[in-house]
Design a protein around this nucleic acid. Structure first.
Length: 571
RNA sequence: GGACCUGUGGUGCAGCUCGGAGUGCACGCCGCCCUGUCAAGGCGGAGGUCGCGGGUUCAAAUCCCGUCAGGUCCGCCA
């Protein structure tokens, strides 16, 4: 039907007659003797010249044949990739007429997302969406190639899975053949892939759709896609190497530049220096610890176990209302307040300045190489809270837009095994209950569980958590000690994880794995703040699909078949 | 469940503080003119439940209350 893509027409083809197909991007008519058509396909735009008028409008689908010609002198368009040539003396066949689109498909204005999503099929014609989805395809293909090259075997796992006894919120699918019983759509192939290890697939991967019925965010959709992998007879370092290789391959394919080796830091270090477990390393403003200076302070506001400080370059120009606003934000995060010190020619400018003794003032004056014009923020509180509050402010004040700056990957390792206590007074697993404790800490499980580090790790890129993984427990004795710490009885364990534990009785190899979000990775490659921009048909924040109208009612007949009734509201 | 922002011809905006005729701008659309444009140009034209409902007022796009939709975030979520 066509000879080539629009943007592939070039000077080497001058003189030949070619046919292209595409949409009319623009028509410029000059009376009844001359008209220009910009014909657009997935590759780009070529100008077609028609001797006479043509009865086509924007977005008509056309098949255009013409002679490739160099443009007359003075009419070359520098801004167009094909701007030196054109198709002349064209005949135009209309393949499909089109009504004017509800919004303009050029990128001159940002159209409201509601409108874009309602007409997503038109939005997808836009250059930006074409680029994003094609970038995603390149990333997918590269990841597959990389995993294959590393000896991994792609295995697909079910979408219809068994409901876990007390799982997090899952999408539920009613069974017609077993009325009253349900499947769930898996949050991840976690159990399935561990069973593949028992099954002897010692290097598994999959580009897997995961489903979570939780509230949506800029970086979260109900459905998202992960590169999921698991391997047997490997250490944590092996897994980090597999994933690093795949991610660096993808980065190279997407950006043209292969990033350097991905560094790592421990979870404790991330919290101490960046106040978060997903540090954005594109900028400084590293948290400083002034606890020692204020250990015996007279200043009431600083009488706390920990005093953390952070320097904001140029921050002395913050207005009082801006500082009040930041103080409110700190308080909403649980801090008692936010101390600030403007560094000026005359010394520290702050409501608290006159309470500081000489040593304390000097310490603040010298935080992180402070210079005149900077500001120092301090939070005095429990250690974890002080870190978290300043870490949040650090991102709010310093973080560049997602698409800016270098891509800074970092592994965060040695996550704590347990975090906090649930309503029943039991410890909660930080990652999941099959995570292997750090070998040096195994004997702390019973004596000091909150100090136990795990062999769980995250991959972080520019402050976004890309994914996480762990070395799994494959030994029954370690597993039962963890269950005990979590308050999971033998019976509980049997009913909740029975078939997994059962499988492990038949020879479970030591194994470890990882999964990371492809949507987030591609969004960052594409410089997009929102993963909707790299998903063909995303949902809105309220979980609606504006194009199809989902979710919707089903018919009475379907309800009857499934033996489902809708309870009255409030019942 | 909560906080904040947004909603005005097909699209993007201004108008809203301080109430006074659906007022304005750009793009698109329709018609006519135009033989080298490329954000084509010129002339003319059509197109509105100011998200929806209620209230205040002589009078509401504008003020108040509620509600719906979209967004960002908290809670939730690895």
């Amino acid at each position: 039907m066509r000879d080539c893509l629009c943007a592939s027409v070039d000077a080497s083809m001058i003189g030949s007659i070619v046919t292209v197909c595409g949409w009319v991007a623009k028509r410029r008519e000059h009376g009844e003797h001359l008209a220009f058509l910009d014909v657009r396909d997935r590759s780009g735009i070529i100008q077609a010249v028609v001797d006479g008028s043509v009865d086509v409008r924007s977005e008509y689908v056309v098949r255009v044949s013409g002679t490739v010609s160099s443009r007359p002198e003075g009419t070359v368009n520098e801004r167009l990739a094909t701007g030196e040539v054109e198709l002349s003396d064209c005949t135009v066949e209309i393949l499909a007429a089109a009504e004017p689109p509800p919004f303009q498909l050029d990128d001159r204005i940002d159209v409201d997302e509601q409108v874009r999503l309602r007409y997503r099929y038109l939005d997808l014609r836009r250059d930006a969406m074409q680029r994003n989805l094609r970038l995603r395809a390149v990333v997918n293909a590269t990841l597959r190639r990389s995993m294959d090259a590393q000896g991994f075997c792609e295995v697909e796992t079910p979408l219809l899975w068994a409901p876990p006894p007390e799982g997090a919120r899952e999408f539920v699918v009613p069974s017609r053949m077993h009325p009253g019983e349900f499947y769930v759509l898996p949050q991840s192939p976690q159990i399935a892939k561990q069973l593949l290890m028992v099954g002897g697939f010692d290097r598994y991967y999959q580009i897997a759709r995961c489903l979570r019925d939780e509230d949506l965010r800029a970086d979260r959709q109900f459905e998202f896609t992960q590169l999921d992998l698991e391997a047997s007879f490997v250490t944590q370092d092996d897994v980090l190497a597999f994933v690093s290789e795949a991610v660096l391959d993808a980065a190279e394919a997407a950006t043209g530049v292969r990033p350097g080796v991905i560094g790592s830091m421990t979870w404790a270090e991330a919290l101490d220096r960046y106040g978060t477990d997903k540090p954005d390393l594109r900028f400084g403003m590293v948290l400083q610890d002034l606890s020692a200076v204020f250990e015996n302070t007279e200043v009431k506001a600083f009488s706390a176990p920990t005093v953390k400080a952070m320097l904001v370059p140029g921050g002395a120009s913050f207005s009082r209302s801006r500082l009040d606003q930041l103080t409110d934000e700190a308080k909403s995060l649980g801090a008692k307040g936010l101390a600030w010190f403007r560094v000026t020619d005359e010394g520290l400018d702050s409501p608290l300045a006159r309470f500081l003794n000489e040593e304390e003032a000097l310490a603040i004056r010298r935080v992180d190489g402070a210079e005149v014009g900077d500001i120092v923020f301090c939070v005095a509180d429990e250690y974890a809270l002080a870190c978290k509050v300043l870490g949040t402010l650090r991102v709010a004040l310093g973080s560049p837009p997602v698409g800016e700056g270098p891509h800074h990957y970092v592994w965060v390792t040695e996550f704590p095994m347990f975090e906090g206590i649930d309503e029943d007074g039991h410890l909660m697993a930080a990652h999941h209950p099959f995570t292997m404790p750090h070998p040096d800490d195994i004997d702390l499980i019973e004596t000091d569980p909150l100090k136990v580090r795990s062999q769980a790790y995250d991959l972080v890129l520019n402050g976004w958590e890309l994914g996480s993984g762990s070395v799994r427990i494959h030994r029954a004795d370690v597993q039962s000690r963890i269950f005990k710490a979590l308050g999971v009885s033998d019976d509980d364990a049997e009913s909740r994880f029975g078939f997994l534990l059962g499988a492990f009785k038949y020879g479970a190899p030591p194994h470890a794995g990882f999964a990371f979000g492809i949507d987030r990775l591609v969004a960052i490659f594409a410089g997009e703040e929102n993963i909707r921009e790299v998903i063909a048909y995303p949902k809105t924040q309220s979980g609606a699909d504006l194009m199809t109208g989902a979710p919707k009612n089903i018919t009475e007949r379907q309800m009857r078949d499934l033996r489902i009734k809708i309870a009255a509201k409030g019942s």
